[in-house]
Amino acid sequence: MKVSFCNSWFRAKKCPTEMWSEDQARAAHEKGLPYTVLVGAVECPYCFLEVAGNAVGVSFLDEHLRESLSYDFQEVESGVLFLTMATHRNFDGDKDRVLSGTSYIFGQDGAVSIRREFFNPHKLETATSSADVAANYSPRPEFGYYDDLVRVERQS
Rank of each mutant, 00 (worst) to 15 (best):
S21M: 00
G32Y: 11
S156C: 08
E67R: 02
E43G: 12
L33Q: 11
R115D: 10
N90Q: 13
T84K: 06
A127M: 06
V58T: 08
D62V: 12
D132N: 09
T126W: 01
Y146N: 06
K2C: 08
L124M: 10
F60A: 06
L65A: 11
E153G: 00
F91R: 03
K95W: 13
L81Q: 09
E67F: 08
Y145E: 15
L83W: 01
D132H: 01
F106N: 01
S59I: 04
L99P: 15
G93Q: 08
E125G: 00
F118Q: 05
A55Y: 02
N136F: 00
R11M: 11
K123L: 12
S156E: 13
E75N: 02
D147T: 09
V56K: 01
A134L: 07
E22H: 13
Y35V: 03
Y104W: 11
F91H: 05
T126M: 02
G79F: 10
W9E: 05
G110Q: 00
S59A: 12
S113G: 04
E18D: 15
L49P: 09
S21E: 06
M85S: 12
N54V: 06
W9I: 04
R140Q: 10
A131S: 10
T128Y: 06
P16D: 07
A52W: 12
G32D: 14
A111C: 05
L65K: 07
V76N: 03
Q74F: 03
G93T: 09
R116C: 12
V42Y: 07
V42M: 08
Y104E: 07
E125A: 00
Y104C: 03
A86V: 13
Y71N: 10
H64P: 10
T36P: 03
P139C: 05
A25R: 02
T128I: 10
S156I: 06
L61S: 02
C6Q: 05
L65G: 08
H29A: 14
M1S: 10
E142Q: 12
K95G: 15
G144A: 01
